[in-house]
Write a protein that binds this DNA or RNA. Structure first.
Lengths: 244, 244
DNA sequence: CGGACAGTTGAACTAGCTCAACCATAGTGG
DNA sequence: CCACTATGGTTGAGCTAGTTCAACTGTCCG
């Protein structure tokens, strides 16, 4: 079960040979359920496990002294946040459940043994952490360079594409169980402005977000509006769009 | 010489035993000089080497279709950007020299052999790429949550701290050979506003930036103004400030 | 001397913020 | 079953940080 969750994740990142797969499947760990808003790991701490999302929706964030919050990333089922905890001495951000979520916790020791025995697995795990890095870069661009409406459209494109790659899109919609306040914390905006911007996007007929679900009615138009290019996601079949 | 540059970098990231050091020193590669604004590697490409900065100042950035640019990070001598090129299929950002710079280019093959033979070295290289990730997160917070003056102060704190850790601070100043336009591209602001914000900071007497150099007259005050906490840099002796 | 580039200034404009109220929905306890 | 509360979404009005555009200055360099 735990091994399956990890295998799931790694298969998205790259190819594995049968022996590698078998080794991954033998990994031991726990499944734990976290309540809405419950922290899985906290700033300053150092968990002795890594994480694979089984069901639910997670967020990585920092809380600032002035009360504001910045969300750094969202995680959908099949994602593996917290791989970095293996090589750092303490965390500089917190990981929490945005909605009730089932999480696979894999002790670092298990992963270290696996990586020592199967170098190819190690290289995929490393690759996974570098893809995470690429996402941070895109989030930086998004919040620094895009106006609110385009930034929001861009985030919607990302979540939709990632959900799609994970097989989590049903017709034209996917889970995105966030409040407008959380959206604001991710986009560097206020809740009020997220509300207005969302209405504006809704009126274009391209997307909608309500009751925790994202509805994408016209992905092409949305992507072009947001100037969204999925190459930064490093999905296996995505090829680079040539720049003009 | 190349080995020395890499050893320099890794020593900042963690400890190595004498055998590890010796192995790192045997690494082969080239030193190449890049002109101001010359690209070392480009979006979409995949270099077959990794990079250590010997002298100068580098920047990682993306150019957008509308002509705007987002700088993701700066690199000072001793930094190793581009470690991620080993595990990705193509780059999603470009690396260039902000001023004439000497760069050590280390073929991936060399690094792979080294990492296979010396697991501890591998773990430090991995760690180095994860620290880079932590910097991206902080840049995201900075550009999303801080007002222009605090954001600029925060960036100045980062560059000063990193330069200090690298032994590159002379009295109260260090190299920061950027134009105001580049500062703007990093902070998500316009050149005009960077100019005004800089004057404002200058007037406080805490900090100044002119002719490509950063002068920090009162680091404590600057850090407190920017709410700067260096723990995200993961410097070896930095301990976490407890949150209130 | 002339041209390029970086820094500086002013004035008008606007995207997004703040504050404060109000509405809708769902869960809770009596 | 209803009243009560909490949470999240919605609206309005005024404000401000940062943008835009356009001009001007200083400096380096050929």
């Amino acid at each position: 079960m735990i091994g399956q969750a990890l295998l799931n994740h790694l298969s998205r990142v790259g190819d594995l040979c049968p022996d590698d797969r078998a080794a991954v499947l033998r990994v031991q760990g726990d499944i734990k359920t976290f309540r809405r808003h419950e922290d899985i790991s906290k700033t300053g701490g150092l968990p002795c496990f890594s994480v694979v999302v089984v069901t639910g929706f997670l967020q990585r964030y920092v809380s600032r002294r002035d009360g504001s919050r910045q969300i750094h990333s969202f995680y959908i089922p099949g994602d593996a946040p917290s791989l970095e905890s293996m090589h750092l001495d303490y965390l500089d951000s917190s990981l929490s459940a945005a909605v009730p979520s089932e999480i696979a916790l894999i002790p670092h020791g298990e992963l270290e043994n696996l990586m020592r025995a199967r170098p190819r697995v190690q290289s995929l795990i490393w690759r996974s952490s570098l893809i995470q890095s690429a996402l941070y870069r895109e989030w930086l661009m998004r919040n620094s360079r895009l106006a609110a409406d385009r930034a929001m459209a861009h985030l919607f494109c990302e979540i939709f594409k990632r959900s799609s790659a994970a097989g989590l899109v049903d017709r034209n919609s996917c889970e995105m169980p966030l409040t407008q306040e959380m959206l604001a914390d991710a986009l560097g905006l206020t809740g009020v402005h997220v509300n207005r911007t969302l209405q504006q996007l809704r009126e274009t007929g391209m997307v909608d977000h309500k009751s925790g679900r994202l509805f994408v009615h016209d992905f092409e138009r949305l992507a072009s509006f947001a100037d969204f290019d999925p190459f930064y996601l490093h999905h296996r079949n995505s090829c680079r769009v040539l720049q003009s």
